[in-house]
Amino acid sequence: MQQINFSKFRKRDPAPSRFRYKFSRWMLSPLIKKAVLYALPLFIIASPFLIYFQDQKNKEQAQEIAFDLYRKIIERPEFMLDALSIEGASDSLNTEIRNILGLNFPVSSFDLNLADLRELVLSLPPVEIAETHIKGGGILHIKVNEKTPALLLKKEMGFTVLSAHGDYIRSVSSRKDFSNLPVITGVGAETAASQATAILKVIDKKLSQVRGLVFVGHRRWNIIMTSGQIIMLPENNPEQAIQKILILDKAEQILSRQIAVFDFRLPSRITLRVPTANYGQTNSEIIGVRN
């Protein structure tokens, strides 16, 4: 006869064991409850990814796939730029801009930073204002305001084209292209370029045969006439001195007389020098040396 094991039928104690009780209380404590509810599922979801990306090879592969996908999206025809249009630039500046940007079209608009391009264009000396934007139809449009050449600064070698305020525009070897610009020279002449512009504005063709202006001693200007005559202007208010010369010239035609140097440095005491025997030599000395 088969023995029946009665312990099998005995009812289990419904009470939780001490450990079970403590564990359930621990699980119900606020921090653990939150951890189990939020942190644990998050960890379980995240762990396969974390394990997968532990391997450098997998990481690189995934990065490659992501990068390919990114390129695929940004290189869609909708985002591509095919041409560059430049507005308001002379031909030489046009080529300069194209060279400095160095874009190989077609290029994606995602790869371009318009603000950077604008900075790049602005770094060119002849450019005063630049705007960059993308036009429909895949065109990168750059609008440029060029600085107007106003003065030609003669240097030891060649010339420098300056704007009315003395900003550098470009260097040229001969004044062939800019023969209409007035010539200035002297050490530090570019720093006083605005004064030179003001002087030239007052002269304004009323004095014929002005060869150029010389900046002397870092403070004042001389007007050199084609005849070799020199008009020394004062440091302060040279425009008034020119007015005086114009009046004198109108009344007395002094400029057409045989006088080498008109010294207007002290407006209250105008000095005239007659030419000596070595007239031309002295003048050339005076141009650079005397103040």
Partner: peptide, 14 residues
């Protein structure tokens, strides 16, 4: 223990 555990379980709070 039995009473407290089931009450805590129902309350879902320690």
């Amino acid at each position: 223990r039995t009473a407290l555990q089931s009450a805590q379980k129902m309350a879902n709070s320690r």
